[in-house]
Simulated assay, not measured.
Amino acid sequence: MADEVAVTVTINGETVTDRVPARMHAADFLRHRLGLTGTHVGCEQGVCGMCTVLVNGEAVKSCLMFAAQLDGCAVETVESLATGDQLNPLQQAFKDEHGLQCGFCTPGFLMTATALARRGQRLCAAEIREEIAGVLCRCTGYDGIVKAIARHLDETAV
């Protein structure tokens, strides 16, 4: 079909080649084509940040990208963080610091914080709040989330 585009993308370390509708959003490609349902879709307008994934190491809202834009990119979703039943250190920090309640926003925070941690900086609580402002939570009040991210940044800072 003329309205389909071929894409080859590395997702969580595995190369995927597919044909996608030209206007399919990256979030829908990840969720519906690839079954990576950890990428949550909330507002579909880039406001809530629930669909945040890493594209070439940068946190992006996948509802604002077309799947075709992923061609040639490396994408990491929340499914890339844990190894089997073993949580990664950031996920463990979220668990230990009570950084989640309903969990719907958690993948967005985890991926945003993963990109943040890769910068190798320690940040104060106010700076962390500013960095995660693109992801909304309706349950936690953010305190546990900020504590978890701060703990992880302290553990991973260079």
Rank of each mutant, 00 (worst) to 15 (best):
C124M: 11
A125F: 10
V16A: 04
H40R: 14
Q45D: 13
H40P: 14
R31P: 05
K95S: 14
L153R: 07
E130I: 06
L36F: 06
G72V: 06
A125C: 10
L110P: 09
T106C: 05
T10I: 03
I145E: 01
H152S: 10
L100S: 15
L110K: 03
C48I: 05
V53G: 15
K147A: 15
R33W: 06
G42F: 09
D71S: 08
C51D: 12
H152D: 08
V7D: 09
G120K: 04
C48G: 08
G13F: 02
R151V: 06
P21I: 00
L100H: 11
K95R: 15
I128K: 07
D71C: 07
E97W: 11
T156P: 00
T10Y: 04
C48Y: 01
E14S: 12
P89F: 06
N12L: 01
D18K: 11
E14P: 08
T140Y: 10
M24K: 14
R23G: 11
P21W: 05
A148V: 10
H40E: 13
L70S: 04
R19C: 11
V53F: 11
V146C: 09
H152Y: 15
T39F: 09
E58G: 13
A27E: 03
T52Q: 02
E58R: 15
T10D: 09
V16L: 08
A157L: 02
Q121T: 15
C73Q: 00
M50I: 00
T15F: 06
G49K: 02
M111N: 13
G46N: 07
G141R: 02
N88E: 14
E130C: 00
V158Y: 15
F66G: 13
N56H: 05
P21Y: 01
L90Q: 08
R122K: 11
C102P: 02
A148P: 12
A113W: 01
L90A: 07
F104S: 04
H40S: 14
A22C: 05
E131W: 09
R118Q: 14
G57M: 01
A125V: 09
E127R: 12
V75S: 10
Q91T: 12
R151H: 09
A67Q: 08
L136I: 07
C48L: 00
T140A: 08
V20K: 06
A133D: 12
C48M: 01
D18I: 11
A26Y: 01
L81V: 03
L70T: 05
P107M: 04
G144E: 01
V53Q: 09
T140D: 10
L81W: 02
H32I: 05
R118A: 14
L81Q: 09
T39L: 02
F66N: 13
Q91D: 12
